[in-house]
């Protein structure tokens, strides 16, 4: 059952991205271009998503286990540190260069575009680099 709901949630997420226009890098860059011809659509994507998710998440925060009886796995970190801010700034630079964030990168992957294949390979490379740097730090 948990596998089925995970698959359905993933499908729904992808359909949402496609409908919202998030899977079109040109539209995402149109939103990030405040000084040019600005397309505010993506602010509404986020607003719509947060509005729907607000109550379910406040319910989830008060629960120890989910409706399918697995432990709630919400992030426990609290600190506002350099890793959080520096990492997010780096992510934003990458997002601003190509107009692609991780979700749309995956919905674009099977579309047969060389660009999305290259982007996802580089994304996995960046995540691999993070793991390698973390291992070095731990030594």
């Amino acid at each position: 059952m948990r596998r089925l709901t995970a698959l359905l949630a993933g499908l729904l997420f992808g359909i949402g991205l496609l409908l919202a226009g998030m899977s079109n890098p040109a539209k995402v860059l149109g939103f990030l271009d405040l000084a040019g011809a600005w397309d505010p659509s993506l602010a509404l994507v986020m607003a719509g998503a947060i509005a729907v998710a607000l109550l379910p998440f406040s319910w989830a925060k008060r629960r120890q286990r989910s409706l399918l009886d697995v432990p709630m796995q919400l992030p426990q970190k609290r600190e506002l540190d350099g890793r959080l801010i520096g990492g997010s700034l780096l992510f934003g630079i990458g997002w601003g260069i190509a107009g692609i964030c991780p979700g749309p990168a995956l919905t674009l992957l099977l579309g047969g575009y060389w660009q999305s294949l290259l982007f996802v390979l580089a994304l996995l490379g960046g995540m691999g680099l993070f793991s390698a740097l973390e291992r070095r730090r731990a030594r």
């Binding site: 700034l89 990458g94 680099l129």
Partner: peptide
């Protein structure tokens, strides 16, 4: 962009 998104996130 992909490298920065992977590393940064």
């Amino acid at each position: 962009a992909g490298l920065l998104v992977g590393l940064g996130t």
